[in-house]
Lab assay of single mutants.
Amino acid sequence: LDITFHVDGKNIHVHGASEEVVRIIEELIKNNARAEEIKETLERLLR
């Protein structure tokens, strides 16, 4: 699975993920999660 995301100002662009995963990533970023935390969360979800 190949998910890429980047933050452009306040806009979060996520590619290669389901809508549910996109929402989770957006929440994590809004809550100022570190990249490592986001990665760990995604790995748990995608197991």
Rank of each mutant, 00 (worst) to 15 (best):
I12W: 13
R34D: 10
F5H: 03
E19T: 12
K30Q: 10
H13F: 12
N31M: 14
K30L: 12
L46H: 04
L28M: 13
G16C: 03
T4N: 10
N31P: 01
L42G: 00
R44W: 14
N31C: 07
R47D: 10
R47I: 13
A33D: 03
V7W: 05
I25E: 00
A33T: 09
L45H: 03
E43K: 14
R47V: 12
V7I: 12
R44A: 08
I12Q: 01
I24W: 06
E37K: 10
V21Q: 05
R34G: 12
G16Y: 05
I25A: 01
L1E: 08
K39C: 05
H13R: 07
A35M: 14
N11G: 05
I3W: 15
T41F: 09
L28R: 03
V21C: 03
H15S: 09
I38M: 03
R34P: 11
V14D: 00
K39S: 12
R44V: 08
L28V: 01
E37Q: 12
V7T: 03
T41D: 02
I12M: 06
L46N: 03
L45I: 08
T4D: 09
N32G: 13
I25D: 00
E26Q: 13
H13T: 11
N32K: 11
R23K: 10
L45K: 01
A35E: 07
V14L: 07
G9Q: 02
F5M: 05
S18W: 04
V7N: 02
E37P: 02
A35T: 05
V14W: 08
E40F: 14
I24A: 09
S18Y: 04
A17Y: 02
G9C: 03
H15K: 11
H15D: 03
E40T: 12
I24S: 04
H15Y: 14
A17P: 03
V22T: 03
K39W: 15
D8R: 04
N32R: 10
R23Y: 11
R34T: 12
I24K: 09
G9E: 03
V14G: 02
I25Q: 00
E40Y: 15
L1D: 06
I12L: 08
I3L: 11
L45Q: 01
H6P: 09
I25K: 00
N31Y: 10
L45W: 09
T41I: 12
E36S: 10
D2F: 12
L46M: 12
I24H: 08
F5E: 02
R47P: 11
E36Q: 11
H15V: 09
N32F: 14
L1P: 06
E37D: 11
E27T: 11
I12R: 00
V14I: 09
V7P: 03
I12D: 00
V21T: 10
L46D: 02
H15Q: 09
E40D: 11
L28C: 02
L28D: 00
S18E: 03
G9M: 02
H15P: 04
G9R: 01
H15A: 06
D8F: 06
L42S: 00
A33W: 09
N32V: 05
I25M: 05
R34W: 05
N31V: 07
L1Y: 14
L28F: 05
I29R: 02
R44M: 10
H13E: 06
H6F: 13
G9Y: 02
S18P: 09
G9S: 02
N32A: 07
